[in-house]
Amino acid sequence: MEQMKKDIENRIAIYALISRLMLVEVDVAFLEQIESDPDLLELFPNYMHWDKRKTLSKELLIEEHYNVDFTNLFLMHLVPYESFYTRDDQMIESGGDNPVLELYNELDFRVELDKARVVSADHIGVELEFMYMLCMALQKALEAEDKDGICELLQVQRAFLKEHLLEWTPLFLINAKRESRTPLYHDGAELSLEFLLSDFEYITAQLDSHCQTQAVEN
């Protein structure tokens, strides 16, 4: 449990980081946050050593490189929505019949799509932020040492990864990495998938260790 308390901070940080990266265009403040922490920066190895990052201003990089890449990856040529991958007709389900939205509703979460500037709640950035929200909730449960709550939240997290994020994001992220034209999004795509896989294993292990009474479905 104590280790989980330490781990949760970093899980929160990484979910926050990658959801932010995938959801809206980066800004100077966001880039500075990454660069202010060597451990975070290390998660972006190509970006860390990229010449242009050192020679060009952040404003210029954003305007001429990152935003172009973001537009290509998230708005124009790839489709970062779950329903596109899971529906037979490859339509984005933007309304109430979206299973992800139903899940948010069940858990009393509500997405502000206008703030997210996405057309549907099953956008990769929103789903990642949902994991971030679940981690925040887990943190509270850990602080309160609410074991049932902890196990329930771990179950929800595992289920959401298994049934949603890991169902479709690998395909998207592999494509995003290959299509990316900047180290930031290249590394970001790789980081995201690698982390999601690793987090799934982590959650499964925690459930095995701490929540033995609750069956873990494989």
């Binding site: 940080a13 959801s19 932010r20 509703n105």
Partner: peptide, 30 residues
């Protein structure tokens, strides 16, 4: 795709808090 596996859950916490990174598109509990 995956060129290597890294440990994301280091012993020390990242100095940047998640809350300052997240976009914050979820309205809290309805």
């Amino acid at each position: 795709f995956i060129e290597g596996r890294r440990s994301f859950l280091k012993g020390t916490a990242y100095s940047v808090a998640g809350a300052t990174l997240a976009t914050g598109v979820f309205k809290t509990v309805a």
